[in-house]
Design a protein around this nucleic acid. Structure first.
Length: 211
DNA sequence: TAGGCCATCTGGTCCT
DNA sequence: AGGACCAGATGGCCTA
């Protein structure tokens, strides 16, 4: 959906080209027409940039399979990584939810990989195999989770939107609040738009992505 | 009707 | 100098 709004549309009253721009820019004389043309050009670029961003966001939505279908398949869907009562499916994911869900998804995949490595290691040891299992699978190059119990769902998104979320200012960004756990019931649930989106958290702070 | 989400405009800053 | 990126402001659309 592309909304066509000409110059002077929403936002045009904010500041305006005659405001701070004139005082901060070097005194290069531009006619009103030139200024308008320049503004149109800049606006067009920005529009294109945001549209590209949305294309990328849509691509990301597509891989978030359970939410990607606008109509869903086989009726209402319950996302396996979201708690009951999570936002109803069938609606397009918001940008922030897409990002948060993608992050959770990546972490989940990481934990699955780690678990697979562990199982492979057990199997190879049990069978007396050494050297036939790809080293990469066994060595665990990434600091992923070491067990399924360490991957939990939590409603408070405590990382994104830190500037707005009061819970994020308490210096416990990575402290988990397990979904449905005791700590969960005792913890404040932030109602900001970000925090209401569940996320996957690490129970063990050691198992984090490196910077 | 309020609130969430979004597109767009705009000015500022940084980078090439 | 021009483009990319960012954040604030604004207004429209939609849903509960």
């Amino acid at each position: 959906m592309v909304r066509v709004t000409g110059a002077g549309g929403p936002g045009s009253s904010a500041g305006g080209i005659q405001g701070p721009l004139r005082s901060s820019k070097p005194p290069r004389e531009l006619s009103a027409e030139e200024q308008q043309e320049l503004r149109r050009k800049i606006n067009s670029r920005e529009r294109k940039r945001m549209q590209d961003l949305n294309v990328a966001m849509d691509a990301l939505r597509e891989v978030m399979v359970p939410y990607s279908s606008p109509t869903g398949v086989g009726g209402p869907l319950q996302h396996p990584y979201l708690p009951p009562g999570a936002p109803p499916t069938g609606r397009r994911l918001s940008k922030i939810s897409t990002l948060v869900l993608a992050r959770n998804y990546i972490l989940l995949l990481g934990s699955s990989l780690q678990e697979m490595r562990r199982l492979l290691g057990e199997v190879s040891i049990g069978m007396g195999i050494s050297g036939t299992v790809p080293r990469l699978l066994l060595t665990g190059g990434w600091p992923f989770l070491t067990g399924p119990g360490q991957l939990l769902l939590s409603p408070p998104e405590q990382q994104m939107g830190a500037a707005k979320c009061p819970l994020l200012l308490q210096g416990t960004q990575e402290e988990p609040m397990a979904w449905g756990s005791g700590s969960m019931s005792e913890s404040p649930v932030c109602q900001c738009g970000v925090c209401r989106t569940p996320r996957v958290v690490h129970v063990n702070p050691i198992t984090r992505f490196p910077k």
